[in-house]
Simulated scan of single mutants.
Amino acid sequence: MRILFLGDVVGRAGRDAVVARLPGLRRDVMADLVVVNAENASHGFGLSPEMARAFLDAGADVLTLGNHAWDRKEIIPFIEGEPRLIRPLNFPPGTPGRGATVVELRNGKRALVLNVMGRLFMDALDDPFRGAQAELARHVMGPQGTVQAILVDIHAEASSEKLAFAHSFDGRVSAILGTHTHVPTADHQVLAEGTAYMTDAGMCGDYDSVIGMQKGPAALRFWRKVPGERLAPAEGEATLCGALIETEDATGLAKRIQPVRLGGRLSQLLPIS
């Protein structure tokens, strides 16, 4: 199976780039499963139902969220009725939506997608390790299993927490991709037991910015340390950032992981067949 994952979509620049380029990118890399983190799509904060529909129509199979999941209140009734949109599973019981979903792919295979949020330097949520453990206990990965691939989006600030999570579940899932810090890391690898990993997949947005936000007002906050104007996304040409993972049919584990960088300011990096 070939899995395409795109990191945090930030603002109009990222949103327009994903909607315009995802259909062709999905075709070019022959992706069976496409997962997009969309929690910053609406002006950098949250996701609207209309934007969610646009990503799904463009070819995303699953959308994940994070700490800005509820910044657009109209997403609450939408997420209750749309199983392809998930939020971190370690939100407390009773939170709208779901933290995992199983999708039937175009090739007839099934994939489980989980979304968890870290707790270091983030909101104090339930334990993402134990939450993921409980969800994974419901599934067997493999040709005759309940699913043929499992992908986890860990939305977290600390690289140490992401790495600890990845090593804890190495060999039990196909891939663990980090989101939230908006900067693509160079540590993409297949871990010792066969799980593909990358600390942060990067963002889909304008990199002439401070993690996707207009650089002037964002930098001024560090100079003055007083509340200023609301941050707004940068609006230059976006770079699509993410990763492509290829799994073994016999096990569901990863054979390789390759970064994706397309358009905008960053050096271009497209997966090879």
Rank of each mutant, 00 (worst) to 15 (best):
G264A: 07
G81C: 01
M203F: 14
K255I: 09
S209W: 10
D127P: 14
C204M: 04
R84M: 06
E80K: 13
E74I: 01
G171C: 12
A234F: 10
Q189L: 13
P83L: 09
Q214N: 05
V19E: 09
T199A: 07
P227M: 10
K225T: 08
P128H: 07
P227S: 07
A196C: 06
T181Y: 06
L136D: 09
R27H: 12
P49M: 09
E74S: 15
F45D: 08
Q214T: 04
F121V: 10
E157V: 06
F45Y: 15
L47Y: 05
A201N: 11
C241Q: 14
R2L: 07
A149I: 04
L136G: 12
L22K: 03
P128D: 08
P88Y: 06
V34R: 01
L191W: 15
Q148S: 11
V152E: 00
I3W: 06
G11D: 11
P227L: 12
K255S: 05
L85W: 06
V152R: 00
F78S: 08
G194F: 13
A254L: 02
E246G: 04
G242E: 09
E237H: 05
I75D: 06
G145K: 07
G202K: 07
A13F: 02
A17Y: 12
P93I: 00
L270T: 07
P184G: 05
Y207F: 14
V10I: 15
I150D: 01
P77I: 03
L89V: 10
T199P: 06
V62K: 04
R106D: 11
H188P: 04
A54K: 04
V19C: 15
P233C: 02
R2K: 14
A69M: 04
R221T: 03
A69W: 08
R98F: 00
